[in-house]
Computed example of a mutant assay.
Amino acid sequence: MTTTPITAELLRGALDLERTEHGLLPHRLPARARAQCADGQLAMAEAQPSGVRLVFRTRATAVELDALRTKMAYRGAPPRPDGVYDLLVDGRLTARGSVTGGNVRTVDMSIGAAETEPGPVGTVRFSGLPDRTKDVEIWLPYNEITELVALRTDAAVEAVPDRGRRVWLHHGSSLSHGSDAESPSTTWPALAASLGGVELINLGLGGSALLDPFTARAMRDTPADLISVKIGINLVNADLMRLRAFGPAVHGFLDTLREGHPSTPLLVVSPTYCPIHEDTPGPAVPDFSRLSEGRLQFRASGDPAERAAGKLTLTVIREELARIVRQRAADDPFLHHLDGRDLYGEADFAELPLPDQLHPDAAAHRRIGERFADAAFGSGGPFGAGATPTGS
């Protein structure tokens, strides 16, 4: 087996790469952004490589990847499933695997504390690949921090030339991050990107879609042909701001994006349906009653009467986002709006309920991805092939 250095030329979907004592750690926010926020939730989310993949051309029939994972665990709950690596050959899902060992970060949600137990590097191996020149993609787990240590193959590896696809830059919450999707290439943004024939940069940040200015600046400075932002649920379940602050914060976020992408198609997506927060403010709090069975659920702890004082709910946010987009679109013909309930609404909840009251399951991810692709990339959609000019 031949070892090939893992370099930026072989990686897609990351905004920054950090050299560690073990190897290469992909980040989905640049160092400058990470330095501006000490929140542990954000640090974990942006270092979990949702949408990040190794891409190379080879005749190899066997591929091995050494990686050091940091896996999350919750005290009092059964172990969480291992993160999944998807291997695609010429765009088709061919195999899946996981690594063993690695670090385990255990969170005690009752007191908000966490501790990390170190572990060894593991290996995921794929064999029996077709003996011909092909493009290989290894999508990294969306739910495990992953330090890339070594790539080995039984034939030479080279970078894949630019395929001329448009780049779609997306930002959202844990739903966009991956939540409970089956695997990294089947999160709803990954599915939509595949259907739309675009290259994905996924800035879905679990618990951290909070209109942070440093996220807007990172997106402003990232080359992209298409941009979408899914806004709302984290602002409610974190109980982060009131209506007075929300509107100007949305305007400020969009203004920053437009500084770097003045004519790029920009789609603002409001929250998908989530019954606990439709008309009840946050914060969302964990329900530990079934944790020993491996079922963590959430509930809204706010009071609906608090909406009069400016507390946010999903209904309030949808109305405000629609208003803001209408106002701005008068001077911005490349700005568009999509009601999140068109992706997952009340009827979908009745058929495919949210297992923990917040996050969709694998079937719902597929439905959301297909509907987004149809609405955004389809004929007449804001991201349709002939709809609008490229951005910057």
Results as ranks from 00 to 15, higher is better:
Val229Ala: 01
Arg326Ser: 05
Ala249Gln: 14
Pro141Ala: 04
Val52His: 09
Arg217Glu: 00
Cys274His: 06
Ala330Ile: 11
Lys230His: 07
Gly119Ser: 10
Gly76Arg: 15
Ser174Ile: 06
Ala216Phe: 03
His337Ser: 01
Leu203Val: 00
Arg163Ser: 14
Phe334Asn: 12
Gly102Thr: 15
Asp39Ala: 13
Asn234Asp: 04
Leu88Trp: 02
Val149Asp: 12
Asp374Glu: 15
Glu199Gly: 15
His336Trp: 02
Asp255Thr: 14
Glu64His: 11
Ala14Trp: 06
Lys134Thr: 08
Gly196Phe: 06
Leu312Glu: 01
Arg244Ser: 14
Cys37Arg: 04
Arg299Ile: 03
Arg96Gln: 11
Phe349Ile: 07
Gln41Ser: 12
Tyr74Asp: 03
Thr187His: 02
Gly128Cys: 07
Glu306His: 12
Ile6Glu: 00
Pro189Met: 14
Val99Pro: 05
Ala362Glu: 04
Asp239Ile: 08
Ala192Asn: 11
Arg125Leu: 01
Glu137Asp: 10
Ala67Cys: 05
Gly282Met: 04
Ala156Gly: 12
Pro355Ala: 04
Glu278Val: 08
Ala73Ser: 15
Gly252His: 14
Arg242Leu: 11
Glu293Tyr: 12
Gln297Asp: 10
Val250Gly: 14
Asp332His: 04
Val198Ser: 11
Gly40Gln: 10
Glu137Phe: 08
Arg307His: 02
Leu175Lys: 07
Thr313Lys: 03
Arg32Thr: 06
Asp162Glu: 14
Asp239Met: 04
Ala8Tyr: 05
Phe383His: 10
Leu10Tyr: 06
Ala159Lys: 09
Glu117Cys: 06
Arg19Tyr: 05
Arg341Phe: 02
Ala14Arg: 06
Gly164Pro: 04
Ile201Gln: 11
Ser183Arg: 02
Leu205Ala: 05
Met1Pro: 09
Ile111Glu: 15
Ala300Glu: 00
Thr256Tyr: 00
Gly340Ala: 07
Arg290Asn: 07
Leu29Tyr: 00
Ile276Tyr: 09
Thr94Gln: 12
Ala114Asn: 14
Ala322Asn: 13
Ala31Leu: 03
Gly23Glu: 06
Pro120Thr: 09
Ser263Tyr: 05
Ser208Ala: 13
Leu354Gly: 12
Glu64Ser: 14
Asp86Trp: 01
Gln41Ile: 08
Asp303Thr: 04
Thr100Cys: 07
Gly384Asn: 06
Arg299Lys: 14
Gly119Trp: 04
Gly384Ala: 15
Ile6Gly: 05
Phe334Gln: 12
Leu54Ala: 09
Gly340Phe: 11
Asp39Ile: 01
Pro81Met: 14
Val107Asp: 00
Glu144Gln: 09
Ala308Asp: 10
Leu210Val: 02
Arg57His: 07
Met44His: 13
Ala14Glu: 13
Ile6Asp: 04
Thr100Trp: 09
Asp279Leu: 01
Pro213Leu: 03
Val236Ile: 09
Pro248Trp: 00
Glu64Leu: 02
Leu338Pro: 02
Asp154Phe: 07
Gly207Arg: 02
Thr390Met: 15
Leu24Cys: 09
His170Phe: 03
Val268His: 00
Met1Gly: 11
Leu235Ala: 03
Leu93Val: 15
Met219Asp: 01
Gly380Arg: 00
Gly119Thr: 10
Ile138Leu: 13
His251Ser: 11
Thr186Ser: 11
Ala113Glu: 15
Leu88Asp: 15
Gly97Arg: 11
Pro304Gln: 01
Leu343Ser: 02
Leu211Lys: 08
Met241Asn: 13
